[in-house]
């Protein structure tokens, strides 16, 4: 009797909680934290000097720059089109809507390598538009545009997927109210729809950004691995690793990890700053 008084009636016994939490921590440690720690440990194995040298190497700096440029183009692009797609799906009825929803998920279900190959087939030398592009001296494959295109493809669903359920939950009553009072479609979008999803949008942008900076498979296919020109950070890490330059490889990898951690910290801060994002807010 005394024991049953001590804990809440619907709570699990202490030993069960301990086992479950312990298992979870062990798993996280083994799969997530240990490898992450290993990346930093390997990077700093010969001290801070060689690690910093690896990062400040011109090829590494070019890779960082290209990664930031790629994310800088892909993320705003996906933000705009993700917002459009979510708006169309959540607020409107039209034939073929289920097809559009399925298409948005396509990048998640297709292997990134295939995503890269699609662009090689379309824009590559032997591809559909290959000759015409050469005639006009436009380079897409083995150049920056191809990398950006592949990244956009792979990261497209993040923002749309984040916004669709949010917009669906909010319904169309506020938009109807705005329109019934004489607001135009565009005015309604900017003054009513967009403010209601701004936190969800920001959240999607951060996730999309993290993925855009880390994308390997699709980018690897279209990049051509030209050092200092078409290498993004993940590709640069692979090249260094394959050349047995472990310290440099892990140093660049550590930098990539830091970018990801900064993104996650921002995401966490966002959740604290806006506590009712996930709780629906409002009513």
């Amino acid at each position: 009797m005394a024991q049953s008084k001590a804990r809440h009636p619907t709570e699990d016994p202490v030993w069960a909680k301990a086992v479950i939490i312990g298992l979870m921590l062990a798993f996280l440690g083994l799969v997530l934290i240990l490898p992450l720690a290993a990346v930093f440990a390997e990077a700093l194995r010969k001290g801070l000097g060689p690690a910093l040298a690896a990062i400040s190497n011109p090829d590494a700096l070019a890779a960082v720059k290209l990664t930031l440029i790629t994310a800088g183009i892909a993320v705003p692009f996906n933000a705009v089109f993700g917002l459009c797609a979510a708006w169309a799906i959540a607020k409107h009825e039209f034939p073929g809507k289920p097809l559009l929803i399925t298409l948005i998920d396509l990048p998640f279900s297709v292997s990134p390598v295939v995503a890269g190959l699609i662009y090689v087939l379309v824009f590559g030398l032997q591809g559909w538009f290959g000759e015409r592009l050469i005639d006009h001296d436009i380079k897409i494959i083995f150049a920056v545009p191809g990398i950006v295109l592949a990244t956009i493809f792979v990261t497209f669903p993040f923002i749309a997927r984040e916004l669709i359920p949010l917009m669906q939950e909010q319904g169309v009553a506020e938009e109807e109210a705005a329109v019934s009072m004489g607001a135009s479609g565009l005015y309604t979008f900017w003054r009513v729809t967009a403010p209601n999803v701004r936190w969800g949008l920001l959240y999607g942008v951060l996730l999309c950004n993290a993925r855009a900076m880390g994308e390997f498979g699709a980018v690897s296919v279209v990049s051509g691995h030209i050092r200092g020109l078409t290498n993004t950070m993940p590709l640069h890490v692979e090249i260094l690793y394959n050349e047995y330059d472990f310290v440099a490889a892990f140093a660049v990898a550590a930098l990539l990890c830091l970018l990801a951690i900064v993104t996650l910290v921002l995401k966490g801060l966002l959740e604290i700053a806006q506590p009712d994002v996930k709780r629906g807010g409002g009513h």
């Binding site: 009553a173 506020e174 109210a177 009072m181 607001a183 003054r191 009513v192």
Partner: peptide
Amino acid sequence: AARRVGFVFQQYALFK
């Protein structure tokens, strides 16, 4: 808007 109706929605639809 052209009809100049005032509409009160079931869940009010106030701009949050």
